[in-house]
Amino acid sequence: MTKPAVAIVGAGKVGTAFGVGLARAGYEVLGVAGRTPEAAERLACRLYCAATTHPEEITQTAGLVFITTPDRVIGEVAGQIAARGGFVSGQVVLHASGALPAEVLAPARAAGAVVGSLHPLQAFAGTEADIEALCGCYFALEGDAAAMTVAERVVRDLGGVPFRLAPGSKPLYHAAACVASNYLVALVDLAARMCEACGLARQQAVQALLPLLAGTVGNIGRLGVPAALTGPISRGDIPTLAAHLQAMAGFPAWKAVYTSLGHYTVDVALAQGRITAAEAAAMRKLLQEAQVQ
């Protein structure tokens, strides 16, 4: 399959990672459209291509259009490009949102393009590491069948692994990604605050937790879930669990998070097979009582 010429609409973190990654994979990037001339030119200089604030100027001749704008404006941008004749029949138009379905690109489909979404299951921080992270990254795909064929080829050319989502599942998929990534940051913040209450400085607390986090992620990679679960709930250690809850008596917000996660962790521990049903029931009772105190 011949690699199509590409237009990038959106010159932020994701657009930059995709643009540079695609160029390195041998795709011709025709141009970059950004919200401001400066943003477009910054990425275009790296790709040796045209820069514009009018997307339709670069999308008309592209075989593949990536819309990598913020989620809230993807539909609006697609509508503007369509109204200005920027989409053509036979074109493939993809957006990179994890939350929105391909249907948000309906204006492109109405112009004869095939549409889809291609979301990298990765956190982008706006650094060079973002580009390297595309290799080995898993990408969630959904949309028109013809668009998916092209999207799968693009993902493999980037060194990634494509997988298709069930119809209508995009919001739940994105929620899963938020739990694994965004909420992990929130949990580290909570753990660091708890360590601060024990006398550690904020930065010291975060640094102390990092090896534990890395070890846990490593165990998940080696052993899988639920086998990687450790800690008091995994071994039915009710006295330690009770001591934790008592220590958080003066911190109701912390205890609320701890007990909610504890209930779910009991289910994981049961699946692991290291605790009995009676131990699980006793821990659930303890957690439930702590929630109402």
Rank of each mutant, 00 (worst) to 15 (best):
M1N: 10
A5C: 09
A5S: 15
G12I: 00
K13R: 15
T16F: 06
T16P: 00
A23V: 02
A23K: 12
A23E: 04
A25G: 11
E28G: 10
E28D: 11
V29K: 13
L30V: 03
L30T: 02
A33N: 13
G34Q: 06
T36G: 10
T36Y: 10
E38Y: 08
R42D: 00
R42K: 15
C45D: 02
Y48D: 01
A50Y: 07
A51K: 08
T53C: 15
E57W: 11
Q60D: 02
T61N: 12
L64F: 01
F66E: 01
T68D: 10
T68M: 13
P70M: 10
R72D: 14
I74Q: 05
V77T: 15
I81H: 04
R84C: 09
G85A: 07
G85L: 04
V93H: 03
L94H: 14
L94V: 11
A96K: 02
S97R: 00
L100K: 12
V104N: 02
A108H: 01
A108Q: 01
A113K: 07
G116I: 02
L118N: 03
L121V: 15
A123V: 14
A123L: 05
F124D: 05
G126D: 08
T127C: 09
E128W: 09
A129W: 04
A129R: 10
I131Q: 05
A133P: 09
C135E: 06
C135P: 00
Y138D: 02
Y138T: 12
A147K: 11
A151D: 03
L158E: 01
L165F: 07
K170N: 04
P171W: 03
A177Q: 03
A180D: 05
Y183L: 12
L184Q: 13
L187P: 13
V188G: 09
A191M: 06
E196K: 00
L200M: 15
A201S: 14
V206W: 13
A208M: 12
L209W: 01
L212Q: 06
L212M: 12
G215R: 05
T216A: 14
V217I: 14
G224A: 01
V225A: 08
L229G: 13
S234H: 04
R235N: 09
I238P: 00
H244S: 04
W254Q: 13
V257C: 14
T259G: 05
L261Y: 07
G262M: 03
Y264Q: 13
Y264G: 06
D267N: 11
A271M: 08
A271L: 11
Q272K: 15
I275C: 10
I275G: 10
T276C: 08
T276R: 08
A278E: 14
A281Y: 06
A282F: 07
R284F: 08
E289N: 14
Q293E: 09
